[in-house]
């Protein structure tokens, strides 16, 4: 995808700038690049879906949208072997502990994509007594993909954004664990 086609370049660029401020060693930098190349090109999803968005995720794997082109088709059923979790669907109170546990079971580095308005904010069910109002209170989220449900193209775009984000990570010396969005916003206030 050409650089201009991306929508939110400032965010990624700021991230890169901040990471480069400390400067990197040539060898370490090369290794970092290699590792990030591997990581960003091999992101395996966890088979996780609660409702409608999950069906669009199935469509994403099917012939028309074919996520296998990017190497994302190795959907693992065991969270230990997956890299990211596409939270496709509503998370309700009763599901929250299960969901949180699944997140904890993912092996580092792990990423979360909030897919669809239910996962982002509770969506049409926001006023319900039994729905979690967005998953970012429960787990840190890397990419938000809006829609109800998002189209498979939007999901592809979302995962590609995640892949870009992984590319600028640091393996050596950097903070490998992810910050929660809350911490991130404290250090990067939006004005």
């Amino acid at each position: 995808m050409p650089y201009e086609a991306w929508k939110d370049n400032e965010y990624i660029e700021n991230l890169v700038k901040e990471l480069q401020e400390s400067g990197t060693n040539v060898i370490v930098g090369t290794f970092d690049k290699l590792i990030n190349w591997g990581r960003s090109n091999s992101i395996w999803p966890l088979t996780f879906a609660t409702s409608c968005c999950g069906i669009e995720f199935v469509s994403l794997g099917a012939a028309r949208f074919d996520m296998a082109r990017f190497g994302w088709e190795v959907a693992r059923s065991s969270p230990r072997q997956a890299d990211f979790m596409m939270v496709a669907g509503t998370i309700v109170n009763r599901m929250v502990p299960v969901f949180r546990r699944l997140y904890d079971q993912l092996a580092e580095p792990k990423y979360v994509i909030a897919c669809g308005s239910c996962a982002i904010s509770g969506g049409p069910f926001r006023n319900s007594y039994h729905v979690a109002k967005g998953i970012e209170d429960i787990v840190p989220v890397d990419v938000f993909v809006p829609g109800c449900p998002p189209r498979p193209e939007a999901m592809i775009y979302g995962i590609m954004q995640l892949s870009r984000k992984i590319k600028v990570e640091k393996f050596f010396g950097g903070v490998n664990r992810q910050e929660s969005r809350k911490e991130f916003l404290q250090t990067h206030p939006i004005d």
Partner: peptide
């Protein structure tokens, strides 16, 4: 479907990327 075709020519490097990832 087409299968892996983005990483490297014809997606040939896909499994290498997977291996790097799994290693670390």
């Amino acid at each position: 479907r087409l299968g892996p075709n983005r990483v490297g020519p014809w997606g040939l490097l896909q499994s290498f990327a997977d291996m790097f990832k799994i290693l670390i």
